[in-house]
Design a protein around this nucleic acid. Structure first.
Length: 428
DNA sequence: GGGCCGTACTG
DNA sequence: CAGTACG
DNA sequence: GCCC
């Protein structure tokens, strides 16, 4: 679909929009979304080169330059601009990056013809597709409810080709949480028996029973490595974190207390560097690099910010670079996305874990509500609860129906029902 | 050197 | 698309 | 970080 065939519902009589770059009203905003790094710098350079007035905020821009993949509703939605018709404020003119590309080719600004314009405010008549901003939400507490459907009998069973290679290495939640989905693999599709698992790629072929005993043996090592992995992943050094995580998993499977360097270096996924560190832990009981890390201001702050739901390594770093150091700094000064606002508001709550009894209570309530909506549902609480953890960070509830159909579309009514009962504080 | 789990949502 | 969540 |  060429540019010219995209719908432009503005005055067909206008051949092009004229403006003078120096006109104080000719302000531009460049929406980088959907544009790769290289193209992005090319465009921002072009904007400079042509002396266009680039604003950092879209709010007051007369022109908004966006990638071709965008249509007006998307732009409004992404930028959170007011789309309502009866608004004294003039609507921006949304134009394609192609205008910049062509201008670069020509070495000067080419006329801003309608072919470049995704939507001009001028004459538009047709009702805007109502992209009302905020649908959802609000009213009550934590516990992430995520009924999922899956595993119903419409699961493609046969496929021999796709054996499941499930792994996990989540660092955040359960500190001693490993085995994953083994039941799922066993019951549903794992074509192998435990004894004959293909070597190497399986990180999770161990029963929780066995594993539990093992955690104690090398506990100190695992804890320190885990702490390091957590820090690395919050630093954006995810591959290093990944390696630590793999090493941790490997060590978990060791039934024996590790007590020699030779022993360590032989373990798969553990190389020289990690082996030395592990040996340091065994030998001296401490891990210097970890302690240095933990005590540095940077890591402390990044760690603090990184625990905010909706804030990952990059945002945390940005905030740090902006000089923020405390949660209060963020609350008062930082730009927070919707999710981050929630994450910050419930900082402690999100970090907290609940005793499994509480999960049982929640499960009971959800069951009650779900069954009231559709009888004969199969409802199973999974996750850490099902694995027998003493405490849980969330509640995972799997809801299906043996007919593979009846559970469909249940989620919204269920959430609604729970909300009415006062059980749900917030629906994210 | 360059890959390293897969998928979905948000903005 | 980049960043994030999550099992 | 590890490994190919």
């Amino acid at each position: 679909m060429s540019a010219s065939s995209t719908k432009n519902d503005f005055d067909e009589n206008i051949a092009s929009i004229d403006f003078i770059p120096s006109d104080p009203n000719a302000t531009f905003y460049f929406l980088p979304n959907g544009i790769g790094k290289d193209r992005r710098t090319i465009f921002t350079n072009a904007i400079q080169q042509f002396h266009l007035q680039l604003l950092t905020s879209p709010k007051n821009a007369r022109f908004i330059i966006v990638d071709e993949q965008f249509d007006a509703p998307k732009v409004y939605s992404v930028l959170k601009l007011d789309a309502s018709e009866n608004d004294e404020k003039p609507k921006p003119i949304i134009i394609q990056t192609k205008w910049l590309s062509d201008s670069l080719k020509e070495k000067h600004l080419v006329p801003l013809t309608k072919d470049y314009i995704i939507r001009a405010p001028l004459i538009r008549k047709k009702a805007m597709p109502s992209f009302s901003q905020e649908p959802v939400i609000e009213e009550k507490t934590r516990f992430q409810n995520k009924p999922k459907r899956r595993l119903s009998d419409d699961q493609p069973q046969g496929g021999s080709a796709t054996q499941v290679k499930q792994r996990r290495y989540s660092s955040d939640d359960d500190d001693d949480d490993y085995d994953i989905m083994e039941d799922y693999n066993d019951t549903v599709k794992n074509p192998y028996k435990h004894g004959e698992l293909p070597k190497g790629n399986w990180m999770c072929s161990m029963s929780s029973q066995t594993a539990k005993k093992n955690t104690e043996v090398n506990k100190d090592i695992i804890e320190k490595l885990q702490a390091m992995a957590d820090l690395y992943s919050k630093t954006n050094d995810k591959w290093r974190a990944y390696s630590y995580q793999k090493a941790i998993t490997t060590i978990r499977r060791c039934t024996k207390r590790i007590d020699s360097y030779e022993e360590i270096i032989k373990l798969p996924g553990i190389g020289e560097s990690l082996a030395k560190k592990i040996w340091e832990i065994i030998d001296t009981g401490s891990f210097e690099k970890l302690e240095d890390f933990q005590s540095s201001e940077y890591m402390t702050v990044i760690n603090l910010f990184g625990n905010i739901w909706g804030c990952g390594p990059n945002i945390a770093k940005q905030w740090y670079d902006q000089g923020f150091r405390t949660l209060d700094d963020l609350r008062t000064k930082a730009k927070l996305s919707h999710n981050q606002q929630i994450g910050l508001k419930y900082y402690d709550e999100f970090l907290e874990r609940m005793p499994r009894d509480e999960v049982a209570e929640i499960e009971a309530v959800v069951k009650e509500h779900a069954l009231a909506l559709v009888p004969d549902l199969t409802i199973q609480t999974c996750g850490s609860y099902r694995r027998g953890k003493a405490t849980c960070g969330d509640v995972d509830i799997l809801i299906t129906h043996s007919d593979g159909i009846s559970h469909q579309g249940l989620l919204i009514p269920l959430v609604d029902s729970l909300r009415k009962s006062g059980m749900l504080l917030k629906f994210i």
